[in-house]
């Protein structure tokens, strides 16, 4: 049994335009099915606005999913009682993109790390102190630094504090929403390696959301490529990067720099902008920008099918 099993998840937002309120529906996530195995990492890539962050927040029920099913260890999360959901929050946590916005500027690191323990009534004061010191050791923070405020730390240190907060309750699943995008490249690798070490040590599963293809390749076991709220390709990391099937994935990967000067790069340039998710194109939502598009693409919604063993793609031309 997979640790997390998401099927046909939809996250629609209704926005009102203007005074009289002409309602438009934004389909941020539109029928996504993914699974995450214990101890493994699923990378989720896509342009900004493709719904990858909404997917993460929806799974944690930080926003209420519109439709679909999310099963954590076989237990349905959608529609779960608030009480049980709180219990389950111990098992699944989130690490945010912006380490400057994700820590309360008026609380010390100690208070920030103690909050999850207090909320879930873990231990007494002394036990909590021990847990926090243990935790701060894991992320390479000295004991004295615990009484500092977030603004006294660098971006990388803050992000590690954010990771420590997520780990405080010994979760099984971490949803990492672009956890290194806001960091310098040199600091990115430190944080990534820390995440990999912690994964080994605590048998964590990650859902790693990013727009950075190289980062995702480095950390993931499986990769899902998203476009306009839908998964267009999903497979093991090697398969996606070596033999990408969907034209969108191919275009994304062609933009990746290759450290090999002899290889001729044939870069696929996508035309146009990402269409608005409130008014997606008909048929295959990618047909407006797809170099392989034909007439049928505007009519047929391509299902996500197993095109090769363990390799799923949503394109009628593959």
């Amino acid at each position: 049994m997979a640790l997390l099993e998401v099927s046909n998840l939809k996250q629609h937002f209704t926005t009102k335009k203007g005074f009289l309120g002409e309602k438009t529906i934004v389909k941020a996530v539109d029928g996504v099915s993914i699974t995450i195995e214990e101890g493994k990492t699923l990378g989720v890539v896509g342009e900004s606005g493709c719904g990858k962050s909404s997917l993460g927040r929806s799974i944690l029920r930080l926003v209420e999913p519109t439709e679909g099913s999310i099963k954590f260890e076989g237990e349905e999360i959608v529609g779960m009682s608030a009480k049980r959901l709180k219990e389950l929050r111990k098992e699944m946590q989130i690490v945010f993109q912006d380490p400057y916005a994700s820590l309360n500027p008026r609380r010390t690191v100690r208070q920030i790390l103690e909050a999850p323990l207090i909320i879930h009534g873990v231990g007494d004061k002394r036990e909590r102190k021990e847990l926090i010191e243990n935790l701060s050791g894991k992320i390479g923070l000295r004991k004295e630094q615990l009484s500092n405020y977030p603004h006294e730390f660098s971006g990388g240190q803050r992000q590690r504090i954010g990771i420590a907060r997520a780990l405080a309750l010994n979760p099984k699943l971490i949803i990492a929403d672009e956890p290194v995008s806001a960091l310098d490249v040199s600091v990115q690798s430190q944080v990534l390696n820390l995440m990999l070490e912690l994964q080994q040590e605590m048998n964590l599963s990650y859902m790693f959301i990013s727009h950075d293809l190289s980062v995702v390749q480095h950390i993931s076991d499986k990769v899902a490529v998203m476009y306009l709220g839908k998964v267009v390709e999903i497979a093991d990391v090697g398969k996606v990067y070596d033999t990408p099937m969907h034209p969108y994935t191919q275009a994304l990967l062609s933009a990746l720099p290759v450290p090999d000067p002899t290889r001729i790069r044939s870069r696929i340039i996508l035309q146009g902008d990402l269409p608005s998710p409130s008014n997606p194109p008909s048929g295959c939502t990618f047909h407006t920008r797809c170099p392989m598009a034909t007439k049928e693409c505007a009519e047929i919604v391509p299902p996500l099918e197993e095109k090769a063993p363990g390799h799923f793609a949503a394109c009628i031309h593959v």
């Binding site: 929050r89 994700s102 820590l103 500027p105 909320i119």
Partner: peptide
């Protein structure tokens, strides 16, 4: 809509705690 408030919700904090520990002090 700050992420630290979302983080608190993700941790399972009740609205009372979020209001008095996260929202009001800031």
């Amino acid at each position: 809509h700050s992420e630290f408030i979302e983080a608190s919700r993700a941790l399972g904090a009740n609205p009372f705690r979020i209001l008095f520990k996260e929202v009001i002090p800031n």
